[in-house]
Design a binder for these strands. Sequence first.
DNA 1: AACTTGATCAACCGCCAGATA
DNA 2: ATATCTGGCGGTTGATCAAGT
Length: 352
Amino acid sequence: MGRSPCREEISGVKKGPWTPEEDEKLIDYISKHSHGSWRTLPKRAGLNRCGKSCRLRWTNYLRPDIKRGQFTEEDERTIINLHSVLGNKWSKIAAHLPGRTDNEIKNYWNTHIRKKLLKMGIDPETHKPRTDLNHLMSLSQLLGMSNLSSVMSSTWGNNHLGLQPDITQLAKIQLLQNLLQLMNSNSFVNMGNPYLFGNPNLNPLFLNGTNPLQTKEPVVLSGSERFANPSVYSQAQSECSQQQDVSKSLADVEGGSIPQDLDYSKISPTNTNHSRENQEENPLPALVAASPRMGTLNPMGSGCGNLAQSSEESPSNTFFDDWEKLFDDERSGSYWKEILEFTSTSASPIMW
DNA sequence: AACTTGATCAACCGCCAGATA
DNA sequence: ATATCTGGCGGTTGATCAAGT
């Protein structure tokens, strides 16, 4: 039970980097006698090291079947896919990459992949899009304050908080911009990165692995009535449905076999028929720019489809007209209204 | 040239679970 | 049944090197 005291540690064995001589001794001994008990190995091999240190040195560096050198793209894909399923189970991940050690994979994850994912707006822990909670929260609070302010204004006839009437609109616009950025970064992530392309579960926004932003036809929408149009969205669904199931992408993993203990029902709560049903009940509106200005929000360009390019096709004059129309339409019952209501009501208590 | 900063990765630490006495 | 041993694992550290100032 518990950690065994390493007696050698007490007697002051050597620590730190291994010398070539020590490596040679260890290799020589293990190749002749096999390692046997790691605890007694150092003494038998004539090494002034802890048995644990010897084991680590052997398994992580000296083992003859260790594969050195750069990780390939395939390796990287494998690691990301497996990590999305297994989490930080480095040894399990390493089992799928012959010749790679758990330590090496762990290091590679922390120094390369993790940063890459963060840059792409993916949370490396959850493999889901990052949401800057602080930012979203502050916006939500702003909305909350604004709503409170309106209530107080109507009650007392003036604005006790000194908030401008436009603050609600501003906050809403900023919140939506955030959401758009999130979705745009997702379109990049999913379409531009082959290892994520086949992994719809990595993206909770794309239920069924479909990105509502990505439609093949240049869909032009403006005003709230467009946002409530499910046909466009379902079209997008079918257009983009070539995305693979996560289990398939995992089956393609180098090494082939998938751990028996994997419970795929835990992998993606959104990647189910249930989510499809939910989606049909509450179709996410196609958030497509009706003006070129909007198009600039997506520097990565298209995925499997295009964003709308033509401003002439929009009956509205400007991008902001469209948004304003959307926000002003309190009767629409649109998805966006729901989002805004949710964010403004679910915010943490306002700090005065 | 000297210093600072950031990235990388080998090695260590501490915890855990299973095996064994 | 309990204590101890052992190997394995994941998290963290610190030495080293390269790039930037």
